[in-house]
Amino acid sequence: MVENHPSQASKFKCEVKNLNFYYGSVRVLKDINLSVFSHQVTALIGPSGCGKTTLLRCFNRMHDLYPGNRYTGEIELDKINILAPWIDPIEVRMRIGMVFQKPNPFPKSIYENVAYGLRVRGQSQRSAIDETVEQALRNAALWDEVKDRLYDLAFNLSGGQQQRLCIARALATNPEMILFDEPTSALDPIATASIEELITQLKEKVTILIVTHSMQQAARISDRTAFMYLGEIIEFDRTQTIFSDPTHRKTQDYVNGRFG
């Protein structure tokens, strides 16, 4: 396995193969096939309830936290199936970060929020943590705003700052991929713009998979877009193609705002 190290040259970071997902006996995702390109932004769009968030949460096995959820099929991260029962979900989450819909900082200091992922990984050397925290906050474009109050409670930040803090928290642990679950739906337009800008910058460092409720956002920031409907991927292509020249009728209707 050691030989099979993740090559930065590989085209696909992640490949989903025939993924099905069940809540109890309800089949929520149907035969999903999707290739997430390395160092690109891949967007999942579709009407609410189409399963895009459910699909996103398969990538870091969040569904394992709740009873009654079941997967079949595979998600390969660098050719290793991370849905296999023998794979430790915690390791998957250490390699794939996540940013949630509502900013959810811990009620601790800004510094501790960013440092938490490092502490979980057993890092205890103060100077190393300091350095990583600063780097993560810089990468999340938050450093200048918070450098004088690193030990303030994170709850005192504005909504947009809290969300960037959550991004910094995910970045601090140096993940290979970050999942974004409608990261701007709880934010105002200015904060949204700054997060979008941040996401496009981040793709140099990490692979990004984003669920978004807004087609404009997908068009602005993503390289590839998958359109989902009723638990299936209807169409997956370059973002430009999806929005200007989709193959399927459903996709066309959706991106033209005829339903959803």
Partner: peptide, 11 residues
């Protein structure tokens, strides 16, 4: 950076 990922390989 890739060294760091290596350490996290499952085995």
């Amino acid at each position: 950076m890739s060294e760091k990922y290596l350490k996290l390989s499952p085995t």
